[in-house]
Nucleic acid binder design. Structure first.
Lengths: 115, 115
DNA sequence: TCTTATACCTCAGATTCTTATGTATATAAT
DNA sequence: ATTATATACATAAGAATCTGAGGTATAAGA
């Protein structure tokens, strides 16, 4: 509820990874999934999510498909081929960063820590 | 060397934690320590570091002390009492965020993963 | 009827970074 | 003697990414 400023830079990876697991999702669904997975501790704001989705689409990593559900419009996003490739590299980039972070912040457990 | 955009938000915590372990450090020393701890994978740029140090000092978390070493000026930073308190909360905030990130990104290992 | 939930969107402002630039001394290389 | 690299500080323009507020619209529950 206030540590969300740490998200910067990892939101794209979160979106891509969720779409790798789910085939297709719409924006609102993504916010709810993240809230659910983190017990409400991380809340993706719409002001961050939608611009991020639009950017990923503009970069060719996501494709969209509009559906009508109960008179409501849903915009489904799914990974393109380029997007599928990017998931892997974005994930290892983020994992590598987290490992480096642990190396800096927990100097006691240097050799092999489990993630 | 390009995953540095993920640092956003965690630089303050890195600085505070290093100072908790080292009593006092100067800016250039911090950049070298981080480079050394991460095998050169994370490079703190001066444009990011110095403003961050100044901000932490302005917030009363760090105090400074200038020293002359070989006709060169060094500005040593150390934790104030407030700074010492903040290290703990910033650290648990960051650890909590990383845990939530793992919950989102690695849905396979939900129960108890080691960090 | 009003609030909450669902579902999309934009935009001003804040924060935090990168990259470039500037100053200055010391040392190693050419 | 000069140039490049290392040490050591700093600022500033611009980019990227977020927060928070606002807007539109439908559906369901109080």
């Amino acid at each position: 509820m206030s540590n969300n400023n740490l998200i910067k830079g990892s939101l794209q990876t979160i979106i891509l990874k969720l779409l790798e697991e789910n085939e297709k999702m719409y924006g609102y669904e993504i916010t709810q999934r993240v809230k659910e997975l983190t017990a409400g501790e991380i809340k993706i704001t719409e002001g961050a999510l939608y611009p991020a989705l639009h950017k990923l689409e503009a970069e060719g990593l996501l494709s969209t498909e509009i559906q009508q559900v109960d008179n409501r419009v849903r915009k489904y996003y799914s990974l393109t081929k380029d997007g599928q490739k990017q998931v892997t590299s974005k994930m290892s980039e983020l994992q590598g960063f987290v490992e480096n972070l642990q190396r800096i912040l927990t100097p006691d457990l240097k050799p092999g820590f489990n993630i």
